[in-house]
Design a protein around this nucleic acid. Structure first.
Lengths: 122, 122
DNA sequence: CAGGTGTACTATTTCACATAGTACACCAAA
DNA sequence: TTTGGTGTACTATGTGAAATAGTACACCTG
């Protein structure tokens, strides 16, 4: 689940993974998220790295911490995640622009999007 | 043109910039590309960093070097760049998939692509 | 009280990136 | 032939983010 060889930092992979599990319903709203030490031993990652990920998730308002009890999924976690995703639409436009400039045809771009849409509905 | 504060390494920015200039016709096929030292002083970047970018461009077959004379745009540079772009289509699909999972609607994705297409044709 | 929780430190290691400086072989024009 | 610009190679150094290691403390709950 965690790729230490990836160019994307481990702590970012963990952030993405937690958000993904929230979206998939594996981490229900209001429920407790795995503890720092639990995730640490489960993933074989240093606790400080997990802590860094959780600090980021707290900053994003996706989870909230109750020192002594644990970290819990925020009631509006899904909304927060969705809003952040909306702000990433320009990334999609930029990437599409690069490919267009390189000579990729528009239909091929639309086909790539359609591919993602089809994968989503199954 | 070069953003030293960007998360993208300078040498990658230079690679992208050269390929972009080739696609735009600013660096015509067969013509000489700016020399290492020339780009170095022009961009205020260390020659070794420019050299690293050129080594990558040579590896991609986009330019070829003639020691003593300079580096020149390969006859099939555009094809090479286009093929590499085609291989990046999965990136577009993956990004679209992430946004879909986060709750972004398909129409919004298509709109983002259309935005890129419109910018291209002007 | 005891155990699990989040949190805060400092220190260390690793690695990619970028820079600095030097040197050499090559080609073309004067 | 000489001169100047070209690519290329090499070592050394500095920088910053990322990750690890270890310790410590405050908090909540059973």
């Amino acid at each position: 689940m965690i790729d230490k060889l990836s160019s994307k930092p481990v702590y970012e992979q963990i952030v993405d993974g937690v958000e993904r599990n929230i979206l998939l319903g594996l981490y229900p709203v209001g429920e407790q998220v795995p503890s720092v030490r639990e995730l640490s031993v489960g993933l074989g990652i240093n606790p400080n790295t997990i802590q860094k990920s959780y600090t980021e998730l707290i900053r994003r308002g996706v989870i909230c911490s109750s020192p002594g009890s644990g970290c819990f999924v925020t009631p509006d976690a899904r909304d927060r995640i969705r809003r952040r995703a909306m702000e990433r639409l320009p990334q999609l436009t930029a990437l599409a622009g690069e490919l267009l400039l390189a000579g990729v045809r528009a239909e091929e771009l639309y086909a790539a999007i359609e591919c993602a849409v089809k994968n989503e509905n199954k």
